Computed example of a mutant assay.
Amino acid sequence: MTRSITRARHRWLTIAVAVAGSVVLTTAPVAAQSSAGSAGSSSGSAAADAEFDTLCTPTESGLSEVSGLVSDGDRMFAIGDSGTDRTLWVLDDECAVTGSLPVPVTPVDVEDLAMSGGTLWLADTGDNNRARTSIGLISMDPDTGAGEHRSLVYPDGAHDAEALLVGADGRPVIVTKEILLAAGVYTVDQSAADLPEGPTTLRRAGQVRLGPTDTPGGPVPIAGSTLVTGGAVSADGRVVALRTYTDVYLFSAPDGDIVAALTGSGPIRVPMPNQPQGEAIAFTPNGDLLSASEAVDGPLQPVQILRRATALVPTSAG
């Protein structure tokens, strides 16, 4: 989400704060609730003694609105959202810029990054006003920048979405960002690389409800703890992460099925550092979890790291 919020959007956020606040006053914060279709919901649990540390702080002004982040172990790839999403930045483990690549297709609003099979996938899914007739995925070669656009259409009208998950099978899963509603889980039945240029109609595969929690952070108190702002899949495909402005939720996916993980049993919740507008999340190949935030007119925010994040989640198929 960009820093510029329309007046109508601001009214909705005000309503969300008021309603979510009344919920928190009457019920204790829960770790997570997830449900597939109309099935019942289940609660997750908070991870004990799991804390993020500071890895490094970027100095590149083009990352003032960082919204998507990926790591291949040697490099971090980062991109801003609408207005700053024409360039993909390449960083080392000290957040120094080692290169940049122009995005091969002009996007509307890139909100997340994923990597699968050596290909970067940019989620051109941002839609603050819920007015887009289609969204898209943009492929990028991380070395040359070459890529293509695939057009996607929701089966039930426009949604805003900031989380893209791509597992070992290459199938994309998009999780929407909903105010006062469960987030929708949408996918297709083929890998992103096999999608035609478009349009392809997404399939609603379930829903997931996160929060509310009392973790501080984000641009809107309490309600921000329920809004999905980013996603990531571990290198082995066995752990799926969704984040809000305030917390990250780690789901077990022992068979690599992202949809089943999100719509199944409760995840592990880890409170995140107080970030002004945290939207980026990424696993490293060794199972650490990286987090980044937009600056929101302040100083550039550090990249945070939760070491051995995947070890927090039981992943045995039994």
Rank of each mutant, 00 (worst) to 15 (best):
I5G: 05
R11Y: 11
R11I: 12
V17I: 11
S22H: 13
P29L: 06
S42M: 09
S42E: 15
S45C: 10
E51Q: 14
T54E: 13
P58Y: 08
P58N: 09
L69W: 10
D85E: 04
L91F: 14
G99D: 04
P102H: 02
P102Q: 09
V105L: 07
T106H: 10
P107D: 00
L113V: 01
W121N: 01
N129V: 13
A131I: 15
R132V: 02
S139R: 01
M140C: 06
D156R: 10
L165V: 02
V166S: 07
A168G: 13
D169Y: 04
A182F: 11
T187I: 13
V188Q: 05
E197K: 14
E197D: 15
T200P: 11
T201H: 10
R204T: 03
T215V: 15
P219K: 10
G224S: 05
V233R: 04
V239H: 00
A241Q: 06
A241L: 05
V248L: 11
A260Q: 06
A261C: 07
T263Q: 02
T263M: 03
G264F: 01
V270L: 03
N274Q: 11
N274H: 13
G287C: 04
G287E: 02
A295Q: 01
D297N: 08
L300R: 03
Q301K: 10
L306E: 02
L306F: 00
R308F: 05
P314S: 06
T315N: 05
S316A: 14
A317L: 09
